[in-house]
Simulated assay, not measured.
Amino acid sequence: MSDGVVGLQIQTALLVFIRITTFMTISPGFSIKGLPNLIKVGLAAGIAFAAIPVVPVLSAEIPMLLFVLLGIKEVFLGLAIGFITKLIFSAIEMAGNFVDFQVGFSMGAVYDPTMGVSVSYYGKIYYWLSICIFFLTDLHHVVIKTVIKTFEYVPIESTNLGGFGVEGMVKLFAIVFETALNLAAPLMIVALLTEVVLGLISRTVPQINVLILGMPLKVLAAFLFTLVLLPTLTKNISHMLPLMVKYINEFIQSLPAA
């Protein structure tokens, strides 16, 4: 095997590794902060090694300056793909934060080192439930296949990514908020109905201190209805998570291939 062919294969492998590594750096499920960096790099290298046979090799050996530019392009493309998956998980976590706000747990938000942000109780529950569903339904395999498929739409030697309009991002953010509200709506309604019941109690029985009774009653009602609605919640989350694959495909197909 000549040195030129080896150089082409090395450059191809490095560019593939850059895109996959940057994707896994920001994508939840693959970038758990408690996971050692060595394991993350090894996992990214393993996926990149498996993807190299299906990725077209560079047509010619490219100079160093162009290689650096292609590497920067791969970094931004990998981050963009990972950000789409992060938005879906953020929508689920946001739904839990909405519930926390209605129940009164938002004041008890603490820093979670595994997520890198301050989250409250239902936010954690919704997030980790989505992570469990993500792996139990083998959706991580589908996401990895989708990321590898992006090399067909945007080859590694492509230098043109076109213009990034704000219309698609605004639409995606609107979908995230809509999804979060739909997911949190049942428990938010339970919390609001609990407030109405407390208001009626304070009117009919003024001797009861509603301020003291309100907080534990809302917490108890939210907890009980969470257990009752857990099958529906898991079903809704399992229907929501595949949206990340859809939006990744739409994003990649919207980019020019050359």
Rank of each mutant, 00 (worst) to 15 (best):
I47F: 15
E61T: 04
Q253D: 06
I201A: 04
M240I: 13
I39C: 03
I92W: 05
Y247T: 06
F135C: 02
I237E: 01
Y126H: 13
A222E: 01
S120M: 08
D138H: 14
L193E: 09
V142K: 15
L233W: 01
L79E: 10
M107E: 13
E152D: 14
A184F: 01
K40A: 11
E93H: 09
L241C: 11
F223C: 04
L14A: 13
A191E: 00
I189N: 09
I32K: 07
K73V: 00
G162F: 03
S202F: 06
K40C: 09
Y153V: 10
T232Q: 14
G168A: 01
K40P: 09
K86S: 10
F49G: 14
N37K: 14
R19H: 14
P63R: 09
A44V: 13
L139P: 04
Y127S: 12
D138G: 08
S118A: 15
I52K: 10
V68G: 10
N249Q: 13
G42F: 15
P113Y: 04
A60W: 02
V143P: 02
I20C: 03
Y247I: 03
F135R: 05
N236K: 10
Y153A: 09
A50E: 05
T226K: 00
F98K: 05
G29E: 02
P206I: 12
K235T: 02
I92V: 15
P36E: 09
P216D: 10
I208P: 01
T226Y: 12
F89C: 13
I52A: 05
P36F: 05
L198A: 07
E74C: 12
I252E: 00
A95V: 03
A185T: 11
K218E: 00
M64K: 08
G108K: 14
G96K: 02
I156R: 01
M107G: 08
V154R: 04
I20L: 11
G168V: 04
I84L: 12
A48H: 05
F101Y: 13
L241Y: 11
V99F: 00
A191T: 02
L233G: 00
V55S: 14
P206E: 08
A109E: 15
E74F: 05
P63A: 13
L43A: 15
E157R: 14
M115W: 01
F173E: 05
F164P: 02
E152H: 09
L77V: 01
I131F: 03
F151M: 07
G123R: 09
G29I: 05
T179F: 00
P231V: 08
L136D: 03
K124R: 15
T150N: 07
Y121A: 13
K124M: 05
G162T: 11
V117N: 04
E74S: 13
R19Y: 04
T21S: 15
L70Y: 04
G29Y: 00
G162D: 08
F67A: 08
G42N: 15
